[in-house]
Amino acid sequence: MKKIPFEKKIVCCLLALAGLAGCSGGESLPELATVTGVVNLDGSPLPSANILFQPQQGKTAFALTDENGKFELMYSQDATGATPGNYTVKISKEKNPEEPGNELLPAKYNEQTTLTADVKADQENEFQFDLTSK
């Protein structure tokens, strides 16, 4: 029996895994653009805020800001980004996460949002939302 070099075994395993990943049976993803940004409230980063980018048609992209107010949109649990196009943006944060419906931000940023974003194809899209508590 002929012995196969270790390097060839590794390459074969990687090729097999790549083939399996392409055959997951899941839906194929549309073109996605990278979308990142930062949310500030009254000049300070806003941590743990929920971000929704809602298109006229199609799937809503979502994110949660980190401790520095930064976010990266997710198209799904497994894919980052958003489809190119125009979005209505909703940002919300509960004063006390244990008491739902206790919104910290004014309605003009969520339920009656005035925020919009235009996501462009083939480029990184970075947005900054400077919110005020008034």
Rank of each mutant, 00 (worst) to 15 (best):
A117V: 04
G37I: 05
D78H: 11
D78S: 11
D42H: 02
Y75E: 10
K120M: 12
T65L: 04
A21S: 12
E27R: 11
G26E: 15
A82M: 07
F127G: 00
Q54D: 13
L29F: 12
V39M: 00
A33I: 01
V11L: 10
E72V: 10
T132E: 08
T132N: 05
I91Y: 05
Q57N: 12
E27A: 14
N102P: 00
G81T: 02
G25C: 01
E98T: 09
K8C: 14
T36D: 10
L15W: 15
T83R: 08
E67I: 05
G25A: 04
T65F: 09
L131V: 04
Q57V: 15
T132A: 05
C13L: 15
N102G: 09
P5D: 07
V35L: 07
E31K: 11
S76E: 04
A107T: 13
A82S: 13
P106V: 00
S44W: 03
P97G: 02
D118Y: 10
D66H: 04
D130P: 12
K134D: 11
A79H: 15
G43V: 08
P45Y: 00
D66Q: 03
E7P: 02
K120T: 11
Y109F: 08
A117I: 07
A82D: 05
P47A: 07
V39W: 00
E126M: 06
A33V: 02
D78Y: 14
L115Q: 11
D66A: 01
E111F: 09
L20G: 09
V38M: 10
L41G: 03
A61S: 15
P100A: 07
T65K: 03
